[in-house]
Each structure stands twice: as C-alpha cells, then as structure tokens.
C-alpha cells in the first residue's frame, strides 16, 4: 500500500483533535480558579475537588453533600445491576448455548430487542407497566407499594432491561468457545455435574463474567435516558449533574466529570485486561 498523502494525514490529525477537544476542555477547566468553567485561565486550583467552599461559595465535589449523595445513589443502583447482570447473563448463556426447547430462536431474537429500543421508550414502558401493577395491587390488597413507583428500584429494573442483553452476549460468546470434551473427560473420571461446573466450566467463563460485570457497572453509572424517566426523588449522579448543568455550570461539574472519566478509564482498562485475547 502506498504511503498516505500529506493531506490525508492532516485530515486524520484534525479528526483526532476533534475527537479529544471536548474531553480535554472538560478536564483542563476542572482546575481553573474561577466560578465559571470558561476562559480566561485564572490559575490552577484543586478547590473544585477538595475545597471547603470558602473561596468560591461552593464546596469541592468531595465535600459537597449533594454530590456525594448522588454518587451513593448511583452505587445503590450499579451494584445490584452488576451482580444480577452476571448471574442472569450466565444463566442465559447456558440456556442459549446448551439447551434446546420450543421457541428458542424467538427467545434469543427477543433478547436482542432491548438494544434497538430507545432508552426513553424502555423507561416510559416500564414506568407505565409498573404503575398499572402497583395500582392494581393497591386496590386488591389495600397496600402501598412504593417500590413500584418512580425510584431507585425501577431504575435498577430499567437498566437491567438492556444491560442483560449485553452481559448475555459477552458470556454467551465465551461459552460458545468452550471445548465440551473437557467436561466429558471430567465426568468420565467420576466428577459430579456440580463439580464439573464449579471446577471446569465456570473457571473458563470467569474472564467473561468479570468483563460483563465491569461493562454493566460502567453502563449503569453512565446511563441517562432510561434512568431519567424512572428516577424518583433520589437522583443518581448523571441525573444530578444534568440538573446542575441546566442551572448553569460551575467547574465543580468539570471536576465530577473528570473523576467519572478516570473511573471509566480505569474500568475499561480492567475490561481489556480480563478479556481473553481478541475480544475487547
């Protein structure tokens, strides 16, 4: 192949500048000693991370109770989503790779659907359905079922509805590569089915399970559309930040964004490290 022409290489350079300009801007202005995340540059500060608020009237993100509460809400959602994604994703992988049953083709196709349904629509449909269930149960049982009203529980369900597709695909792809003769050999040697599962099959799947969990954690933390519809009074981090953005940004938002980017970068690096060759 000929060497790329100069103009072609300049185009590639311009493209990468375009790609990184917004992220670099966010990161750099997190350290600007100003009330506004905009030029001119007024000097370097970490006040927007650790400040008490004495300087700008607003505390840094690590000391801002509202920001920390939002982070805690995100964790309350992300941890169950991650664990359930791994467990149910693994069960789905076994179901699709190992079992035959009527309607299997249809079920496996339907499992892909949540990826093509816009997040806003997943949100409104789950909101409407759970409200109907809650109303019906409240009439029959005369009980308040608050967990079926907008709130963190519904956010968990909403996020699971599409993150499960991803964890199923990741774990299923790994199970497909498994050499069944290893299991047969263990069975021939007298191991019980449970023992074969725990000593041979699951250890083989572990990298994919960890990878799927990390992807689920990342997607849960960053999800916006579905969460926005289902959220109640406890706002997870992206929803809280969105509210702040609409009120007028301060560099505190840049600081939070930078922390999120670093966290995501860390998770993504972990995903790359645990994934078996050639499937990142």
């Amino acid at each position: 192949m000929n060497k790329a022409s100069l103009s072609y290489r300049l185009y590639i350079l311009a493209f990468y500048l375009f790609l990184f300009a917004p992220l670099v801007s966010v990161a750099v202005f997190a350290f600007n000693a100003s009330l506004f995340p905009a030029p001119p540059w007024k000097g370097f500060t970490v006040e927007w991370f650790t400040g008490t608020g004495a300087l700008f009237g607003k505390p840094g993100i690590f000391r801002d109770p509202a920001m920390l509460a939002a982070f805690l809400n995100s964790l309350k959602v992300a941890i169950p989503v991650t664990l359930l994604s791994i467990v149910i994703g693994t069960a789905n992988a076994f179901l699709l790779e190992r079992r035959e049953f009527p309607g299997k083709a249809l079920l496996s196709m339907m499992m892909l659907w949540p990826l093509v349904i816009p997040g806003v629509i997943l949100g409104i449909s789950i909101l409407a359905f759970s409200s109907r269930i809650a109303n019906a149960l409240e009439t029959w049982l005369n009980m308040d079922l608050d967990f079926l009203r907008p709130g963190l529980f519904l956010v968990i369900l909403g996020q699971l509805s599409f993150i499960l597709t991803i964890s199923t695909l990741i774990i299923g792809a790994r199970l497909k590569k498994f050499d069944r003769s290893l299991e047969e050999a263990a069975l021939d040697l007298g191991a019980s089915r449970l023992r074969v599962l725990t000593t041979i099959t699951l250890p083989f799947l572990k990298p994919a399970m960890v990878g799927a969990g990390l992807v689920a954690l990342l997607m849960s933390f960053e999800n916006f559309n579905t969460t926005l519809i289902l959220v109640g009074s406890d706002a997870p981090l992206p929803i809280y930040m969105y509210g702040q953005m609409r009120e007028g940004a301060t560099p505190a938002l840049n600081a939070a964004s930078l922390v999120l980017m670093l966290g995501a970068g860390f998770l993504a690096t972990l995903v790359a490290l645990v994934s078996p060759r050639k499937e990142a």
């Binding site: 300009a21 917004p22 966010v26 916006f224 953005m245 940004a249 964004s257």
Partner: peptide
C-alpha cells in the same frame, strides 16, 4: 468511555 453527559458538557464549554 466517558458518559454522554460529559461529552455534551465538553461541547457546551467549547
């Protein structure tokens, strides 16, 4: 790897 919200914030700043 950065969330949609962070990318949007970047464009707003630019």
């Amino acid at each position: 790897w950065a969330s949609e919200l962070v990318r949007t914030l970047g464009w707003m700043m630019l």
